[in-house]
Design a protein around this nucleic acid. Structure first.
Lengths: 187, 187
DNA sequence: GTGAAAATAGGGTAGTTGCCCGATTACCCT
DNA sequence: AGGGTAATCGGGCAACTACCCTATTTTCAC
């Protein structure tokens, strides 16, 4: 639907800046992790010297911590590498039309970063609930959990219910993935 | 130097296959980690139904274990996401000229894979079973899986049973962790 | 020492999982 | 042409999950 022409490629931050200043492209797709100069600092520099060029940053998994800094550096797009196949083209199209593009999930971090006077407690679970969650993620049945913790099956069930409610998760599979993300269990 | 036109984008495996079959593009850039059907199995399918389309796979860090499987699936390009900013365009250019492109570092794995033909570290699951496994790990119920794949609940159940038997895994939780380890789903 | 949150326990139920048995159709390989 | 594997579909069943409700005791902060 939209054609993009590749005018140059570089593999480190200083080279990228030089290339952008030479070619004055509409869009520069830049990796946050680069030798000699990271993507955010490169973007900050380019915002000064080449304001016409719109910068899209590529970032590793959960480097959403940098999003605030990136936006201050006038970055127009912020794409997680995990989403690069599906999102990069979207980002380029949207940015070339003057918009701003953030990978899904990043917007969340933006909002939080905006009014981040109080740090998120990240995990609203009680100790017991986290313990139950871990055992579930390890593959134990509720009955197993109960006997392992020395409580009744109904109590274990209560903990399970409540933690699922708190996390807004409604199947075991998603619960397990959550536990893996939290580092409660090894995948 | 070379212009590429984007004709379609999709965000899950089944959609990608549908789109490629519809648009018959020269190149399809596919993420190995996708919902509903992983990139390698999608590539294998496309090699059968759309041999004209050249597939470039995008992969996470060290999933080089899959390179052998990918090459068997007639994949023409294999790009690490850590190199995506600098390598993807190279890969597309090279592949469009009939070549094969592998991110630096992957070639190593190729040679090793070649010299150890008998090594089959991958799981013993069929494509269909792997697909069912992925959907389960994504949190779908067997009923959901059935309707997503357009098969009966009993068939989905059969696949689930057989793959659990093959893997010697007996609860959903362990199944999910296995799928995460295999890179079939993001934690 | 009062109140909120957590931990405990139970009743009930619809739906799902895990597994047993069986079967037909299709395709690849030799 | 036959044999192995994959994919499809079915009946039945014990166990488990997910969620509804209530209720008592413990713990801890203010």
């Amino acid at each position: 639907r939209e054609k993009f022409q590749v005018v140059a490629e570089g593999s480190d931050g200083q080279e990228v800046i030089r290339l952008v200043e030479t070619h004055q492209p509409d869009i520069a797709v830049i990796d946050i992790s680069m030798p000699t100069l990271n993507g955010i600092d490169a973007a900050r520099e380019l915002a000064r010297t080449c304001p016409k060029t719109k910068v899209i940053l590529l970032t590793q998994h959960e480097e959403e911590q940098y999003i605030y800094e990136a936006l201050e550096a006038k970055v127009k797009g912020y794409v997680l590498k995990s989403q690069v196949a599906s999102d990069l083209i979207h980002a380029m199209q949207q940015v070339s039309r003057g918009g701003i593009y953030l990978s899904p999930g990043v917007s969340q971090a933006v909002v939080e970063a905006y009014h981040s006077k109080s740090v998120r407690p990240s995990d609203p679970l009680s100790v017991r609930e986290r313990q139950v969650l871990q055992l579930i993620a390890e593959g134990r049945s509720t009955k197993d959990v109960a006997s392992l913790l020395g409580i009744s099956v109904k109590t274990a069930e209560s903990h399970r219910s409540r933690l699922m409610q708190k996390l807004d998760i409604h199947e075991t599979a998603s619960l397990v993935r959550y536990a893996v993300r939290r580092g409660l269990v090894q995948p």
